[in-house]
Design a protein around this nucleic acid. Sequence first.
DNA 1: GTCAGTGCAAACTTTTTGCAACTAC
DNA 2: GTAGTTGCAAAAAGTTTGCACTGAC
Lengths: 162, 162
Amino acid sequence: MSECTDIYTIAAQRLTEYMKGKNIRKTPERFEILRIVCQTPGIFSIDELHEIMEQKAKFQVSRVTLFNTMKLLEDAKLIIKHTLARAAHYECCINPHPLVCMVCQKCGMVRKLESSKIENWLSEQKCKQFIITQPVLYFHGLCRSCMVKSSIKKRSRVKSEK
Amino acid sequence: MSECTDIYTIAAQRLTEYMKGKNIRKTPERFEILRIVCQTPGIFSIDELHEIMEQKAKFQVSRVTLFNTMKLLEDAKLIIKHTLARAAHYECCINPHPLVCMVCQKCGMVRKLESSKIENWLSEQKCKQFIITQPVLYFHGLCRSCMVKSSIKKRSRVKSEK
DNA sequence: GTCAGTGCAAACTTTTTGCAACTAC
DNA sequence: GTAGTTGCAAAAAGTTTGCACTGAC
């Protein structure tokens, strides 16, 4: 928890910095949402975040505000938006680094890979026509579980740790 | 056009092969959709495909059938599904290869990169816990046009060549 | 003839918008 | 006090489902 608090402190500073001179107000909702986002491991949807806010954090906030705040946090580069499933999913990302994700085409499971080579590869690329803010490498395939079970169940939403 | 026809011939063979022994029927809708998909460059949404079918191909087909058929073609590995925007986008991909896409965070533009190095990098990866069927590397960032214009217009849908 | 496929309408899910009340500045 | 923010309700957008009809096998 103390580590989470540290992350939140940094994140809150960055958000304050981002807001500066932009006519963007520091509302309690925005900082409480950021706090929960920092405390939530893995990726989550708006609905999941809404439930966490109400159940765990006992903080009432509307879905509309969550949508708006996610956009703000994304612009401030404090979270990353994944649109792998029908509903967008987000994750806290205080120190953006190249993400390597395994996405199961059957169950929607997402797993992250550690990789230094991809970073080297990325640094070699010359992209004058494009400012890269966040590279994400998705591997679409089948996870071990779905490899074994040959069930024909429908592709579900992205799973997150509950 | 002759090249497109060739691609369709190969695709139709693959689809037929995929359907074999699966109780999946060869309907004219499915093959006509596949033909148009093979003739359509770049990425497209269900709605865009629906318009092309009606306007250019003069072939009446419902959106429901397009959704179903896209699922079938995806399973048959003849198309790739991108979920970068609110609406899913698809592209024909007869010979799947690692895709490297630049996605503009502002206007939603998608551009493909040529890259052989990413293929080498991928071949080095050992993924025993995962069968990779399609690697896609997305660069999220800003395209040249949005770099210059500092307009604050909202992020729009994925653009495709019209 | 059977049952998978099609297409309409309706339901459902996710996201956006309009608007009144609120509040950070 | 002003204007950005919140949150409700409603609309919009994308996708799925129920069901009757059709047609591939």
